[in-house]
Design a binder for these strands. Structure first.
Lengths: 233, 233
DNA sequence: TGTTAAAATAAGTAAGTACATAATTTTGTC
DNA sequence: GACAAAATTATGTACTTACTTATTTTAACA
């Protein structure tokens, strides 16, 4: 196969990929050197390089200096999830968004939260509980901790107008983020808020963000019962 | 800031990122042209280009030909989840892996499965139910459909030696994959297999894979109660 | 004024070259 | 034969130049 006219590094990537799919190259095999592939496919080595590093990012191949390129024996499925701002997500579905503040209090964070941030003690924090509504129905229940040590100006934010979620995203970009996803049985109090039966299975997303090593916020988001995280990879 | 010695596109990326973090550039702002940034940072435009396309991949900025580069107003949190082969995952934890075949039967797929594959009817498929054990305890319960139309040779596979999971990964690479994640209450039969109380909240991962447009497999994987998907982004 | 065509612009892609870096292989020495 | 130093090798990164393409701006025209 040659790429007479409009070739691109993506074409090269797909060519390599198709050779993996049709078993020209098999798991564990060593691929030809970039240089040789460039000759064969009649393109520059930099184009092969671009294609290869993309495949390496995707977890399909493994590259080592001097060692060459091999097809991974145990490829992982690598899927990317997009977690939008809740308001944006709801409005993208064409539903009316509303945000209801439940409680907001300045307090010391418990050890479990400090541990999540990877610090010894978070003495000054705001805990915000809020409900995001889509078309009048509960959509996401969030239980959030915001570090006042890192974000002191959060004290003055009026949460009746803007959700903590939105304010933080627009005012405090983060440099690092950790996400944990799990299932949990909902308890009575939360069940009432979410308008679901007690003991329903809920999908929980916990997100923790930092700027550098400074904690910004930790949020436990409980999603509607029928919520599905959908990814493409 | 200049990069006297060892500069790289990653340094440029971090420089741009830090300018976003310290509000030199704010959401909605237009960034300087690649060319000007290259002059300022004393590097080639291709280096800026590489840094920028990485930031665009991460969902932080948006680039348009002629339009230039802007900081996204509503950045999404983009997290990558790695879904390894179950056996590899368990062994990576230092636990003993065992695989227990529950049922395996050739049958016609129900409409719900065909729909997932995006085809009208899947007439010839294998349905495999199996339990992956870690250190003697149930770890993942999988309910899998394999298209015999796409993978006829699966008929002859002896599932007492190798899990369908592993056989497929090693023999039938896919070109497209869809993942759905949700929470579900476990029912009696499955609860017994997983050795958990009936009505526990389980994290479910459903994966569907294709080669081109041809369906390969669809699997519903029910994870242990305390399972957490952890990502970094 | 509105509609269309042309020009300008900024990112996208690619080629080719040069040098850096991490591993491996070969060679040299005891 | 064991070990360390040196040469080799394949990928990693960067620079320069050239050309392409999508989109906006401007200009021309009805």
């Amino acid at each position: 196969m040659t790429f007479a006219d409009r070739q691109s590094w993506k074409d090269v990537r797909e060519e390599i990929r198709s050779r993996i799919l049709d078993s020209t190259y098999r798991p564990g095999d060593k691929l030809p050197r970039d240089h040789d592939l460039a000759l064969e496919l009649k393109c520059a080595r930099s184009t092969v390089q671009r294609a290869m590093s993309s495949l390496a990012d995707a977890g399909i191949i493994e590259r080592k200096r001097k060692g060459g390129t091999i097809i991974k024996l145990d490829p992982v499925t690598r899927a990317t999830i997009n977690i939008p701002i809740t308001k944006v997500e709801i409005e993208a579905r064409g539903l009316k968004y509303r945000h209801h503040l439940i409680t907001s209090a300045v307090t010391k964070a418990p050890l479990s939260i400090s541990a999540r941030f990877g610090i010894a003690d978070l003495n000054s924090a705001v805990r915000v509980k809020a409900l995001h509504m889509a078309a009048g129905r509960p959509y996401v229940l969030e239980d959030r901790w915001i570090s006042l040590e890192t974000v002191p100006e959060f004290r003055g934010v009026d949460l009746s107008n803007i959700s903590a979620n939105e304010w933080l995203v627009r005012n405090r970009p983060y440099s690092r983020c950790n996400v944990q996803i799990y299932a949990e049985l909902i308890m009575k109090k939360e069940a009432n808020l979410m308008e679901v039966p007690e003991g329903s299975a809920m999908l929980i997303l916990e997100r923790t963000t930092w700027i550098g090593d400074e904690p910004i916020t930790h949020v436990k988001a409980t999603h509607t019962v029928d919520y599905r995280l959908i990814t493409n990879g």
